[in-house]
Simulated scan of single mutants.
Amino acid sequence: MKTVIRAFFKTLRTVLGPFMLLKERLTQPSGMVREPSVQTTVNLQCKNIALYQFNTCPFCIKVRQEMRRLSLPIEHRDAQHNAAHRGELLQGGGAVKVPCLKITDASGKSQWLYDSTAIIAYLRSRFAKV
């Protein structure tokens, strides 16, 4: 029974995935416009942040859209097809659950933030007013 359920969801992802990605591309929000010096500062702050995600995960798409809206050049790490990224997510965050935002501070300590709503709230609180 477990095999049948997995096969069903894999087929569903295979069929719906391209449509979800197409919708994401067609509905891309325009990015926030900042002064060049402010955007440079934001870009530097984003170098210490990475998003672990699956391409067709609806919650990951929601976070990526917000990142575009806020003009944040945050690195995307594919935890679905890249074994190294999947391993980092499991070891550092404790679970292979996406989306997950890895935030590294100046001292090198990492915080792992799960849940799309929490990630969006964090990004808005840190970057929306900049």
Score class of each variant (00 low, 15 high):
residue 21 L to E: 13
residue 83 A to D: 05
residue 50 A to F: 11
residue 127 F to I: 04
residue 45 Q to R: 14
residue 36 P to V: 01
residue 45 Q to G: 04
residue 27 T to L: 10
residue 110 S to W: 03
residue 75 E to S: 14
residue 113 L to R: 07
residue 106 A to I: 11
residue 64 R to D: 02
residue 68 R to A: 12
residue 64 R to L: 00
residue 43 N to I: 00
residue 42 V to L: 10
residue 51 L to E: 09
residue 103 I to S: 11
residue 55 N to V: 06
residue 66 E to K: 12
residue 27 T to D: 01
residue 74 I to Y: 07
residue 63 V to E: 01
residue 52 Y to A: 05
residue 63 V to C: 07
residue 45 Q to A: 13
residue 87 G to S: 13
residue 51 L to S: 10
residue 110 S to M: 00
residue 76 H to R: 14
residue 83 A to I: 01
residue 103 I to P: 09
residue 61 I to A: 04
residue 115 D to Y: 04
residue 98 V to K: 03
residue 99 P to W: 04
residue 35 E to N: 13
residue 127 F to R: 09
residue 47 K to L: 15
residue 46 C to T: 12
residue 48 N to F: 14
residue 67 M to K: 05
residue 52 Y to T: 02
residue 26 L to A: 03
residue 108 G to M: 03
residue 20 M to L: 15
residue 48 N to G: 15
residue 100 C to I: 01
residue 40 T to A: 15
residue 105 D to M: 10
residue 55 N to K: 15
residue 56 T to A: 12
residue 39 Q to P: 13
residue 92 G to M: 00
residue 122 Y to Q: 06
residue 91 Q to T: 12
residue 43 N to L: 00
residue 53 Q to S: 15
residue 38 V to W: 11
residue 91 Q to V: 12
residue 120 I to V: 04
residue 83 A to V: 04
residue 92 G to V: 00
residue 95 A to Q: 07
residue 27 T to S: 08
residue 39 Q to Y: 12
residue 101 L to N: 14
residue 84 A to I: 02
residue 42 V to C: 11
residue 100 C to G: 09
residue 35 E to W: 04
residue 85 H to Q: 09
residue 20 M to D: 04
residue 29 P to H: 06
residue 74 I to A: 03
residue 51 L to N: 11
residue 58 P to A: 06
residue 110 S to P: 03
residue 86 R to P: 03
residue 86 R to Y: 04
residue 44 L to S: 14
residue 37 S to C: 05
residue 105 D to Q: 09
residue 67 M to R: 06
residue 57 C to N: 11
residue 60 C to M: 02
residue 22 L to N: 15
residue 31 G to Y: 02
residue 96 V to F: 00
residue 63 V to Q: 03
residue 36 P to S: 02
residue 106 A to L: 13
residue 81 H to K: 14
residue 91 Q to R: 12
residue 101 L to T: 12
residue 83 A to T: 08
residue 114 Y to K: 02
residue 41 T to L: 14
residue 55 N to C: 12
residue 77 R to T: 01
residue 45 Q to Y: 08
residue 63 V to I: 03
residue 114 Y to W: 02
residue 51 L to I: 09
residue 124 R to F: 07
residue 127 F to P: 05
residue 60 C to Y: 02
residue 62 K to L: 03
residue 41 T to A: 14
residue 102 K to W: 03
residue 124 R to W: 08
residue 51 L to R: 10
residue 61 I to W: 02
residue 65 Q to R: 10
residue 101 L to V: 13
residue 62 K to Y: 06
residue 104 T to F: 00
